[in-house]
Design a protein around this nucleic acid. Sequence first.
DNA 1: CTGTTAGCGCCTTCAC
DNA 2: GTGAAGGCGCTAACAG
Lengths: 328, 328
Amino acid sequence: MATIKDVAKRAGVAVSTASYALNGIQKVSPATVEKVQKAAIELNYQKNGFASDLKRTKTNTIALILSDLSGPYYSELIKGVQEVTSANGYDLIACSSIGGELSTATKFLKEKRVDGAIILAHNISDDLIKKSARKDFPIVVLDREIDSEFVLEVQVDNIQGGYVATEHLINKGHRNIAYVSGPYNSHDNEKRFHGYKSAMLDHGVSYQSRLKISGDFTRESGYRATKMLIAQQNLPDAVFYANDEMAIGGLQAFSERNIRIPEDISVVGFDDIQLSEYVAPPLTTIRQPKYEAGALSVHLIFQLLAGEKAERHYSLSTELVERKSVKN
Amino acid sequence: MATIKDVAKRAGVAVSTASYALNGIQKVSPATVEKVQKAAIELNYQKNGFASDLKRTKTNTIALILSDLSGPYYSELIKGVQEVTSANGYDLIACSSIGGELSTATKFLKEKRVDGAIILAHNISDDLIKKSARKDFPIVVLDREIDSEFVLEVQVDNIQGGYVATEHLINKGHRNIAYVSGPYNSHDNEKRFHGYKSAMLDHGVSYQSRLKISGDFTRESGYRATKMLIAQQNLPDAVFYANDEMAIGGLQAFSERNIRIPEDISVVGFDDIQLSEYVAPPLTTIRQPKYEAGALSVHLIFQLLAGEKAERHYSLSTELVERKSVKN
DNA sequence: CTGTTAGCGCCTTCAC
DNA sequence: GTGAAGGCGCTAACAG
């Protein structure tokens, strides 16, 4: 592997001159630049990224940290992040936090292998995030609240989403509305639940704790929760699932028992994942502005990197997507 | 930012000793190790990853290069790669090749910011791959053939897949079978088509070029191609779409014209994407061993990195998934 | 077991 | 406009 030294030698100049020439710094004569470039090509020279980063203490790349790279859910989010990142001439790498403390994500955070990070990964601790963030290493969190000067929060308004979903059900004449929850440690779940309860309250519908069934955001758990609901005999008028995956699991459970959606019972989900449009019946759900969340997050990172100030908290609103799983 | 020097000073030892202690090299007394660790914690020391990589000329991370990080298609593949990578104590980063020559992917390849790469991205040139690969930087390509000592090819047996799909249609009594193709520059498409033709030939079914309709792997193109097919009046008995996305577009076109699947016409796709199970009717298709492809690829990288020899070409076989889009 | 020291490859003052 | 030299933070001989 040729180094800049080799190039300099071959071009018959000093290393510094070669460096200037290669980096387009207006300090060398055109003739010299050409000589250097020629030598570089002849030697198939490629700069060593690490050495360069080490020296400049800047990587020009930002990381997107996800708990699971393979989740189809992130598609839109990634797109938003990617577009803005490259529009600003930065590089983006995605890394997974699987493995917790030993994960690639943790390593990149701790060792500052990037200039900033966007995090949507439960299994990265608040503590690590707080410790890692600093002026020249801003972090945006998408799934939690962290009180630190260099950590910004971009959130989807889950309370409003939960409220709208529930209100829709109420407006369609439903009163007895069950809530299938996400895991207890999920912020998102808590807020959706909060919205659900508020809507009930505001419309004079009474909430009883038996209406809350616990799930964990997986399809399987939605299936199980629904089975349980069915087994308990007295079925509610409608079910609000804290996410689409669980709703799809629920749909399956209902269909196995020949309970028709929406004739016998109405269903609404949350997220608007791609599948929701295709299941039978197509799922009425709450769309999250994922692309926007991604794009905004990177924007903020660049803002902080540029030394500008920014609000610490952002809330993006959701939108009801009406399809066919709610009785009219 | 504290450096190892600061730690050493605070612990009252030499830098090398601190380095050994921090890296768990059996050369320092337990007492010293403790002293050093204490100092490190007090100073909130974090090693600088670049400096470390620079010195070791090894990053312990491999890159997965995809043309579009946001494609849901890759889910399984990524999982395979991820699991094997972390099982070997390596880190994985995913990066996109959007932007071609200027992309993050290109930069990582050129600057050797990782120890090896797995590539599934049309817009990275063969030339760049050939130039980048070397003994200590093995590359696995998933979507093409490249003749170079340090580039390995892992492929799905598309010919066999195309053959099996077509044969299935023939076995079910179809004779007049259309093929909706992917883009012309796609290796995968070409092989699937090849399989299709072989199966026809082997079963004494004649192929005419009018049976081949061109598409480009997008849902939209499947929709358009199907519209065209319908407009031409004399509908075939069955359509083999070169991928599921197009088949799903086709399903929609048929449904708009009230052409029933599979009563009026049979359909088979290719890929077995998640959606295929949920569309109406559920799509009969060819499953690709994506997880296996990912896992195998990383395995091979590690093998080469360890200096072992490996076959240069691998072919993984596909499998027919029978659902409801083919008439019995 | 511990300390000294020489780079890894590059960038960047500072003199000339 | 060009060259010499120092150092980014870390590791790994080598000596003691």
